[in-house]
């Protein structure tokens, strides 16, 4: 019973991290009809920018001057601005130039951009000390094979003095808060409604007077901020961040979004949770299941693509015109 409960908590927490990345995919797909594949890398970029800003601000002594929560807020703000800018850059250089080409082009260009983000993170956050020397000291060549770019410890910013349960509650709480805020934003504000309108019918949206370009840009900004916070939660939950984590989160987030119906953000939530539950339970209950958990999770995704391409809660609204 304790095992079951523990695994459910694990799945929910993992699901929270997948969900936020999946929503990023859904937002971008909604307004641009393209898969922005570097969403995962943007999220990890957010985590790294928080870590980097923390290192700089901490050495400047800001944490002794400001209350902790204010300092964390500043860090989140810095990361949000950086991620929003990265979102803009993604749009400007990887999506917009291919607006009138096949959907494959922005897909490829964002994959390429993701590689660039990842490699730049790997280079910038490289150890000053030659890590290979350390690998040698450990007597194992295996370490050297792993490469010089090491994972970075994520500063403990969520519940620094609290228990693990408190931290987990905060992660779930922040995710719920973001989802609620997003829900209200999408349904109660003009910008949010415009985003929905564009995702449903871009030409019509333009016709009824929505400044589509502006909304698309705003979507990339908002998506960037969301991914920044997502990356922060991912890093805090895992306690470390690796420069190449973006690939994994990107793939899982994309898979979750597909399960959910790609342009449907509520579907992304369900998809993220479903993927996390499948993974955790395969890993937790099948002997030596961990090696297969990702495989089985992706089999589920393929199943959805084949049998329910409109997504788990996507409606079949085929509008005949």
């Amino acid at each position: 019973m304790e095992l079951l409960f523990g695994q459910i908590i694990n799945a929910i927490l993992l699901g929270c991290t997948y969900t936020l990345v999946a929503i990023g995919f859904s937002l971008f797909f909604g307004v641009m009809d393209v898969v922005v594949f570097c969403a995962g890398d943007i999220a990890i970029f957010g985590a790294f920018s928080i870590m980097g800003a923390y290192t700089i601000l901490a050495s400047a002594g800001i944490f002794s001057v400001l209350p902790f929560t204010v300092a964390v807020f500043i860090l989140l703000l810095v990361a949000s601005i950086l991620c929003a800018s990265l979102g803009l850059l993604t749009y400007r250089f990887s999506v917009k130039p291919f607006e009138n080409t096949s959907a494959l082009m922005p897909l490829l260009s964002t994959i390429a951009l993701g590689v660039v983000i990842k490699e730049v993170l790997g280079l910038v956050f490289q150890r000053v000390v030659n890590p290979l020397a350390k690998a040698a000291a450990s007597g194992g060549e295996a370490l050297a094979v792993q490469g010089g770019r090491n994972p970075q410890a994520m500063p403990v910013l969520i519940a620094p003095d609290g228990t693990i349960t408190e931290r987990n509650l905060i992660i779930i709480g922040v995710t719920l808060f973001l989802l609620l805020a997003l829900f209200l934003f999408l349904n109660k504000t003009k910008i949010g409604l415009s985003m929905q309108a564009i995702s449903q019918n871009k030409d019509l949206s333009r016709m009824i007077g929505i400044n589509v370009n502006r909304i698309v840009i705003l979507t990339f900004v908002i998506g960037g901020v969301l991914l920044a916070i997502g990356g922060f939660l991912v890093g805090s939950y895992n306690t470390i961040i690796r420069f190449d984590n973006g690939t994994m989160y990107g793939t899982k987030g994309f898979a979750a979004a597909v399960v959910g119906g790609l342009s449907n953000i509520y579907g992304a939530i369900v998809g993220g949770m479903l993927l996390a539950f499948v993974e955790v339970f395969v890993s937790g209950y099948i002997p030596n299941g961990t090696a297969y958990s990702s495989i089985i999770a992706f089999v589920v995704v393929v199943f959805f693509i084949v049998f329910k391409p409109e997504g788990i809660i996507g409606e079949k609204t085929v509008e005949k015109v």
Binding site: G6, Q146, F281, G284, N288, G289, T290, A291
Partner: peptide, 19 residues
């Protein structure tokens, strides 16, 4: 009592730990 193999780059070990 059990063997679990993980992908390189795995960051979440909690399901295994419960196990």
């Amino acid at each position: 009592l059990g063997t679990e193999k993980v992908q390189e780059g795995t960051v979440d070990f909690r399901p295994i730990i419960q196990k």
